[in-house]
Design a protein around this nucleic acid. Sequence first.
DNA 1: GGGATCGATAACCCTGTGGCTATTGATTGA
DNA 2: TCAATCAATAGCCACAGGGTTATCGATCCC
Lengths: 107, 107
Amino acid sequence: MTNAHDVLFRTLSDPTRRAIFERLCRQGEQTVGALTAQSGVSQPAVSKHLGVLRQAGLVRDRHQGRQTHYSAQLAALSPLTDWTNQMNTFWQSRFDDLESLLKRMDQ
Amino acid sequence: MTNAHDVLFRTLSDPTRRAIFERLCRQGEQTVGALTAQSGVSQPAVSKHLGVLRQAGLVRDRHQGRQTHYSAQLAALSPLTDWTNQMNTFWQSRFDDLESLLKRMDQ
DNA sequence: GGGATCGATAACCCTGTGGCTATTGATTGA
DNA sequence: TCAATCAATAGCCACAGGGTTATCGATCCC
């Protein structure tokens, strides 16, 4: 059972790949060449990372002549925020349970 | 430069390890034995995962006799929520720039 | 047309790491 | 005291995946 969280966490766990995504969030649409120039790795490596990001839905591409422009798809991050919220909820509900238990013991 | 985001994403990217952390969030403190029983992997594998989670600050351990109890440290997730918020902010600020540009062009 | 550039793909290598079994150390309890 | 249980560690293996170079297809421009 490989869910959306799996894909997102795994995709963003690589520092080089996450740096590429961060750049797209900061500076908007970028060509592969521009991304390669400041990535510290080769162009094929960047293309591979962009492929992974695209499969995760985190970026989309737009072809224009011989260059390809990539841009961040921020909506794809929502399962991540959902997950952290859920963890917080679980934790909070356990705290509530403890609280009510203590209240009952107090009576 | 390996920052807090690296550690968190990397730690949570493994499904087995994340499942262990989720269980600790849901059900609170658990022994290694209990976690092993429903993890689908061997006890040494679980111990290794717990070691990684502990080094990331995501869990803490409490020794009691020959068993070790682990519990989630939810505060350790904050760099993750910070990061997603930051990405949203970057994206939003670019949107604002575009908006103001269009406003200026409109006049 | 033909050289140059851009980006994707192929083919390969090598490290990191998640899994296992075996073992050890510590604690429990009969 | 001694067997049994719990969890950590050691040592090993197998594979995923991130890196490289080489190449190809397509587009641009001279």
